[in-house]
Amino acid sequence: RERTTFTRAQLDVLEALFAKTRYPDIFMREEVALKINLPESRVQVWFKNRRAKCRQ
């Protein structure tokens, strides 16, 4: 699998959701994945990595 490159628009949507909740449930992830045209698994990993970035 190639490394996913997120567009600015995708990142804006993800960051906005992250500001609301750091742990979105499966339904929220599915919804945002459809909206920004990414698989739900990529959204899940993005959140995992974003939380890790926050902890540093």
Rank of each mutant, 00 (worst) to 15 (best):
V43G: 02
N49E: 15
Q44A: 14
L34A: 14
R8H: 13
L34F: 08
R55M: 11
A52V: 07
Q44T: 14
C54L: 14
R22V: 08
T21R: 05
R1H: 15
F47V: 03
V45I: 12
P39V: 04
F27C: 13
F47Y: 02
V45A: 14
I26K: 13
Y23I: 04
N49W: 05
V32A: 14
V43C: 02
I36R: 01
L34K: 15
R50H: 06
W46F: 03
R22S: 13
D12F: 03
E40S: 08
I26E: 13
L38D: 01
I36Q: 03
R3C: 06
N37V: 03
R8A: 15
V13D: 06
E31Y: 06
A52M: 11
E40G: 04
P24H: 01
D25C: 05
F6W: 10
D12R: 08
K20N: 09
E15S: 00
A9W: 09
R55L: 14
V43L: 05
K48D: 09
P24R: 01
D25G: 04
R51T: 03
E15G: 05
D12P: 04
L14E: 01
A9Q: 15
F18A: 02
E40K: 06
F27A: 15
E2Q: 13
Q56L: 05
V45S: 11
E30Q: 13
F6H: 05
R1S: 08
V32F: 04
R3W: 07
E40Q: 08
E15W: 00
L14M: 08
A16H: 15
P24E: 00
E30N: 13
A52I: 08
R50L: 03
R50Y: 02
M28N: 04
T4Y: 14
Q10H: 04
K20H: 06
T4L: 11
N49V: 08
A33S: 09
Q44E: 08
Q56M: 15
Y23S: 05
K35F: 03
V43P: 02
R1L: 14
R42C: 14
R29T: 12
R42T: 14
Q10W: 05
C54V: 12
W46N: 01
T21H: 08
R42G: 09
N37F: 06
K53D: 15
I36K: 02
C54Q: 11
K20M: 08
F47M: 07
V43D: 01
R55A: 12
K48M: 12
I26L: 10
I36Y: 07
R1I: 13
D12H: 07
S41I: 06
R3A: 12
R22N: 11
L34N: 15
Q10T: 04
I26C: 09
E30I: 04
V13A: 12
R51G: 02
V45F: 14
I26Y: 13
R42F: 09
E15Y: 04
M28A: 14
E2W: 01
E2R: 05
L17T: 14
Q56R: 08
V43A: 01
P39K: 03
L17K: 04
E40Y: 09
R55V: 13
V43S: 00
E2K: 08
R42H: 14
R3P: 13
A9K: 14
L38G: 04
R55T: 09
A52L: 09
A16L: 05
T21W: 02
R55K: 14
V32N: 03
R22L: 07
E40C: 06
A33K: 00
F47S: 01
F47W: 04
S41V: 09
E30C: 10
F47K: 00
V13Q: 08
C54R: 06
A33N: 01
E30M: 12
A19M: 10
L34I: 12
F6R: 01
R55P: 11
F27W: 10
V13T: 13
E31R: 06
V13S: 06
Q44P: 01
A19R: 10
M28T: 08
V45T: 13
E31T: 04
F6T: 06
R22E: 15
K20L: 04
A19V: 10
T4F: 15
I26W: 10
A52W: 05
A52N: 10
F6N: 03
C54G: 10
E31C: 05
S41G: 09
T4D: 13
R51P: 01
L14H: 06
K53S: 12
L14K: 01
T21P: 03
L38V: 13
R51D: 04
E2L: 06
R42W: 12
R3G: 14
D12C: 10
L38P: 02
R1Q: 10
M28W: 01
F27Q: 15
V45H: 14
I26R: 15
I26D: 09
C54F: 10
A9D: 08
K53L: 10
F18R: 01
L14F: 01
T4P: 07
T4M: 13
Q56N: 09
F18W: 14
R8W: 04
T5R: 08
D12I: 08
A9E: 12
P24W: 00
C54M: 15
D25A: 02
N49A: 14
K48F: 05
K35A: 09
A16T: 13
P39G: 02
N37H: 10
Q44F: 12
F6D: 03
Y23Q: 08
I36S: 05
K20D: 05
R22I: 10
F27M: 15
C54N: 09
F18E: 01
N37L: 05
Q44R: 08
L17G: 01
A52Y: 07
Y23V: 05
C54T: 13
S41M: 05
R50D: 02
E15A: 00
D12W: 01
A52P: 01
Q10G: 01
T21G: 01
R42Y: 13
N37S: 08
L38I: 03
T5P: 10
P39Q: 07
F47H: 01
E15L: 00
V45C: 12
P39I: 05
D12L: 06
D25V: 01
Y23K: 09
V43Q: 01
